[in-house]
Amino acid sequence: MRHTSPVTVYLTLLIAMLCQLFPWVGQGIIFRPDFMLVVILYWLLRAPHLCNIGTAWFAGLLVDLATGSLLGQHALSFSITAFVALSYQRRLVLFNSWQLAGYVFALLMIERIVILLLKLFEGNENPGWHYFWPIITGLLLWQFMILMFGGLTRPKTN
């Protein structure tokens, strides 16, 4: 496990919140990645002692408050995703970067599906395939996080 300072974690979460608040005009909203979720997942997988299901839940609640959607739905989806992410967290050391990307893809997919189910229960129409675009953009954001803050495990030293 690599050393991480709590300041970095909370600062990046704040920046993610800012990005979430950034005004997305018109059709751009389709491609908007879930900034908060990707950043939370990164810290969950890298520093589980700093970031836990409770943090994910709280972040989801903030997203709900900011988006004005039904309170608690992002909180629910974030905590379920965090649970799945953490239950395999110790095996990630064995994954190469492609496998890791696939794993993150699956996690983002879980979050989208939970939200979709909740929205359908609320009586919304089926949004169509473009609803899943944020997974792709979220993966790009994930790669960006890895570039910025390094991989999940300590780089190999020869």
Partner: peptide, 20 residues
């Protein structure tokens, strides 16, 4: 982990119910 996720899921579901 499991007890945590159950706790937080229950919490968010009750918040959703209260909000709705």
């Amino acid at each position: 982990l499991f007890s945590r996720v159950i706790f937080f899921c229950a919490l968010s579901v009750s918040i959703m119910a209260i909000d709705a």
